[in-house]
Design a protein around this nucleic acid. Structure first.
Length: 804
DNA sequence: AGCACGCCGACT
DNA sequence: GTCGGCGTGCTC
């Protein structure tokens, strides 16, 4: 008797193991590992993944698989194996690993319903329940359980008058269209034609069409092109002359685009030197990791494109990861332009259905290349030839909730299994990557020249303290003001960068100093002028703006800080007539808004593009000749050991937006700490020196890449409990690790309270601790019941990117 | 995660 | 004496 080992969709410690099920006869030769099934689990039904087919089970009384959800496995053999690696690496549940590998459309939806078993028993029900069932036999559980009819309900369930139904549903339907086709051969059709009553003009017209084109046609098209109504089609369907079929179609998010086809460009000598080792690795089918280190505008993309070209010629497949802050449109166009419909695209801007369709194309081997954000690293290819990660240093490649994986690690792991290269591209690589490249763990490939010998833009660093001293209290320094004015006159474009959103960052009482805080999170509330509200950016809490101080009743309440909205107003004042496009989370939240705004800017319908983080990447418009950074130091003071690195990267990226084409570019960076090395060196665009400086600091403070770090965040409603548990954990870990490891804590998290929960953390810095994973597992095990009962939460991140 | 089972306080 | 509170443990 064959048995299926199934991982059920219940993310909990106790269910994080295979459960055995009997395979019904009808599925005997159909079921293979990697398929989703619906199985009975206790009283309910849940989705599960078959991971293995076994001969027999230790377990005496097996239940049977209820239903099969897939015709072909959604997880191939390699991904099933990879999930073992992923769960071990990130300490996540098996089911979470599976789910992160698949499009969200494949996650099950559960519905609980109540059914009246026999309509004739309706009268037996208490009147409260009777009314519920007046319109039908089945109602949703929520409709009954919200009132106090619950006990009545349970009685009737015990009486066998009502029954509870558990349903497992798919999230998306495969999109289909109706096709009409001849039901008979052409010969027979002609025979029918000759005997057909000639007064049926419309039906004859249809038959004539299908004699001429003996193939299926979209029902919609039949009606519109041949000018017949659905009644006519119906008539022929009933006579058995035509048949109707449904065909799966893909929602194509790029259907309405005209993307120009491009041919491989002639590589510069720099580029061809860089691509050689990659091509060699492809040739030898050898796993290797390359760091393609090239300044902005040095033509990394063409290297990617031609590497993939080779992979495709070899009949293999490629994955290209791009940062989620998706200025992917330009990137996507380049790949679609080169490889046409052999490209699938996966990013967060797509609907659940669209993502599913793109994923299906990969699964069905209808595409050979996928361009996508972080999770695209799990694209179900089976003959991978290359994985490319563009802007390798981007933090969005790290998933910040379970499973806390880094796409770079997954890429390397997969590439090892396929003996294929990984290419990491960046102008400002992460220190970890650059250090490995220097050590020879990765191969360093350098593109040192910008394309077409374009020079890097000239950078001005302006000391805003100086400005203030000389009486300029505006948010624009005199230099920046002058240059913006100059661009406006020359009809060239300016990009202004500010990494904050909202109108003012916080509201403060000038009498008592009170800063309005979120009642749930101990974080300052942000003022949003748009709807006149105070908003918490962490939990979403909203409140109206007070006119008087809630603490001392003073009416000296003022806004502080500078947000994009405020800058926009200031621009309107200082540069009347300048046309501004503002891009921040508020103006781009609508689907497609992002791209629309960019297109407007590209078409020259605005002089100034004002935005936050999201405009730092990818922008590549010829008419941008000035980039201004309004306050370079805002992120420098975040409590994060990577803040200098991030500042440097961001400033370099933003500066790279200027002068990428014929016109030369200029950059103005405004700061209150011009002497800080990350700002100074970003001004000189000197990554190598920045690297040296930062490495020294990392070494002294025992941070990556010299040490690995792991972060444990404990949260609970009660402060005492939180501290207590964190303390115990810190002590336990200290006792189990070697003296080489540094265990810091317990300390309050940089966000000390979130959603009414206190947060404390323990940070582990280590070099080699083979026991660490086991120790961490023990920590989780040990607090298992506490997590269940008192709502204690323990999050473990073995390679955190945000220490919050 | 659900859900059932089971053991103790305030009610018809 | 019973209803229902939620601690405990199981789900192939």
């Amino acid at each position: 008797m064959a048995v299926a080992k199934v991982i059920v969709d219940v993310p909990a410690k106790q269910t994080n193991r295979p459960f055995d099920y009997r395979i019904p006869n009808r599925l005997m030769n159909v079921l293979v590992p990697g398929m989703r099934v619906i199985v009975p689990f206790g009283p309910r039904k849940v989705q599960g993944f078959v991971i293995e087919i076994a001969e027999k089970s230790q377990f005496p009384k097996l239940r049977e698989i209820s239903e099969l959800m897939d015709i072909e496995p959604v997880l191939n053999e390699e991904l099933l194996l990879l999930s073992d690696w992923l769960t071990e690496k990130t300490l996540c549940y098996k089911i979470s690993a599976f789910q992160v590998m698949l499009p969200p459309a494949l996650k099950a939806k559960y519905e609980k319903k109540v059914r009246l078993k026999n309509r004739s028993h309706l009268a037996m029900l208490p009147s409260v329940l009777q009314s519920l069932f007046s319109n039908g036999d089945v109602i949703k559980w929520e409709e009954v359980s919200k009132g106090n009819e619950l006990s009545l309900l349970q009685k009737e369930i015990a009486n066998d008058v009502l029954e509870v139904l558990y349903e497992v549903k798919e999230r998306v339907k495969k999109k289909t269209i109706k096709m009409v086709a001849p039901a008979v051969t052409n010969k027979e059709l002609q025979k029918i034609r000759s005997e057909f009553p000639s007064r049926n003009v419309k039906q004859l017209k249809l038959i004539d069409h299908f004699i001429e084109h003996h193939e299926p046609m979209e029902r919609q098209k039949v009606m519109s092109i041949l000018g017949v109504s659905s009644a006519v089609i119906k008539g022929l369907l009933e006579k058995g002359i035509l048949t109707e079929q449904t065909r799966e179609v893909y929602r194509d998010p790029y259907r309405d685009r005209d993307i120009e086809k491009t041919e491989p460009l002639q590589l510069t000598s720099d580029q061809s030197q860089a691509i050689q080792p990659i091509l060699a690795a492809l040739e030898e089918k050898k796993h290797d990791v390359f760091l393609l280190y090239g300044v902005t505008g040095s033509g990394k993309t063409e290297v990617y494109l031609q590497s993939i070209q080779r992979v495709l010629e070899d009949g293999r497949e490629g994955i290209v990861l791009v940062p989620e802050i998706s200025l992917t449109a330009q990137m996507v166009n380049r790949f679609k332009g080169r490889f046409g419909d052999r490209v699938a695209v996966l990013h967060s801007g797509l609907s659940v259905g669209e993502k599913y369709d793109e994923w299906r194309k990969i699964q069905r081997k209808e595409v050979k290349v996928v361009v996508g954000a972080r999770s695209a690293v799990f694209a179900p290819f089976e003959n991978l030839g290359i994985i490319i990660i563009d802007e390798e240093h981007e933090t969005s490649y790290k998933q910040e909730d379970n499973p806390r994986y880094h796409a770079r690690d997954v890429a390397i792991e997969r590439a090892k299994r396929y003996n294929c290269p990984v290419v990491l591209g960046s102008a400002t690589p992460s220190l970890e990557t650059f250090a490995r490249a220097k050590k020879g763990v990765y191969q360093l490939l350098t593109l040192s020249k910008r394309m077409n010998e374009r020079h890097l833009p000239h950078v001005d660093i302006v000391d805003m303290r100086e400005e203030l001293r000389e009486g300029n209290r505006s948010m624009f320094s005199r230099v920046l003001h002058e240059k913006i004015q100059d661009r406006l006159e020359k009809k060239e474009q300016t990009v202004l960068f500010l990494n904050k959103r909202g109108h003012s960052s916080f509201v403060m009482c000038r009498d008592c100093g009170l800063v309005l805080q979120c009642p749930n999170c101990d974080i300052s509330l942000t003022y949003h002028r748009f709807n006149q509200q105070m908003k918490c950016h962490y939990c979403g809490y909203e409140s109206i703006v007070p006119t008087t101080c809630p603490e001392c009743a003073s009416d000296h309440i003022r806004y502080f800080g500078t947000g994009t909205q405020k800058v926009e107003e200031e621009i309107a004042k200082v540069f009347p007539g300048a046309r501004v496009i503002r891009m921040d989370v508020d103006t781009t939240s609508r689907k497609g808004a992002h791209e629309k705004l960019l297109t407007q800017f590209q078409e020259g319908r605005a002089d100034i593009l004002l935005g936050t983080q999201m405009i730092a990447k990818g922008l590549d418009f010829p008419n941008i000749t000035l980039v201004g950074v309004l306050s370079a130091d805002t992120m420098l003071h975040l409590p994060d050991f990577r803040s200098s690195e991030k500042t440097f990267q961001l400033l370099t990226q933003v500066s790279g937006r200027a002068g990428r084409h014929e016109l030369a570019g200029e950059v103005v960076i405004q700061t209150y700490t011009p002497e800080h090395y990350s700002i100074e060196l970003a001004g000189e665009q000197d990554f190598d020196q920045f690297y040296e400086r930062e490495m020294m600091i990392r070494k002294v403070h025992k941070y990556p890449p010299f040490y690995y770090i792991a972060l444990i965040t404990v949260s609970h409603e009660e402060l005492m409990k939180t501290v207590d548990v964190t303390e115990k954990i810190t002590g336990f870990i200290t006792s189990r690790l070697s003296n080489e490891a540094v265990v810091l804590g317990p300390v309050a998290s940089p966000i000390p309270r979130l959603n009414n929960r206190y947060r404390y953390q323990c940070l582990i810095k280590y070099k080699r601790e083979p026991k660490l994973t086991d120790v961490l597992k023990t920590v989780l095990d040990h607090h298992q019941q506490d997590m269940h009962q008192s709502g204690l939460q323990i999050a473990i991140d073995k390679n955190p990117y945000i220490l919050m």
